[in-house]
């Protein structure tokens, strides 16, 4: 899990071009949007593409999107749960 979180952080930094950010600066439990990292709706779309491209996982509804993309940890959990079987 920790490995996945670390990998995900690096992928997010690249995908969203957060060049001034280092993986250790991102609190895996903190919200990615608005108050936390300050991401917005365009980033949400980019992260959706990332999940599908790199992990073959599709977010079905916007409600699911909100849950999955809440934090790095929630993304990692979503990946782990769905890649089990």
């Amino acid at each position: 899990m920790e490995q996945l979180v670390q990998k995900l952080k690096e992928e997010i930094i690249t995908a969203l071009n957060l060049s001034e950010m280092k993986p250790e600066n991102i609190d895996e439990k903190a919200p990615l949007f608005v108050d936390g990292l300050g991401l917005d709706s365009i980033d949400a779309l980019e992260l959706t593409v990332l999940l599908e491209k790199k992990y073959g996982l599709k977010i079905q509804t916007s409600e699911e999107g909100k849950k999955v993309l809440y934090s790095v940890r929630s993304m990692a959990e979503f990946i782990r749960e769905n890649n089990k079987g």
Binding site: A15, I42, L45, E46, V49, E52, K53
Partner: peptide, 9 residues
């Protein structure tokens, strides 16, 4: 398929 939206925007 699966295009990044940022350059379009």
């Amino acid at each position: 398929k699966l295009l990044n939206p940022t350059p379009f925007i």
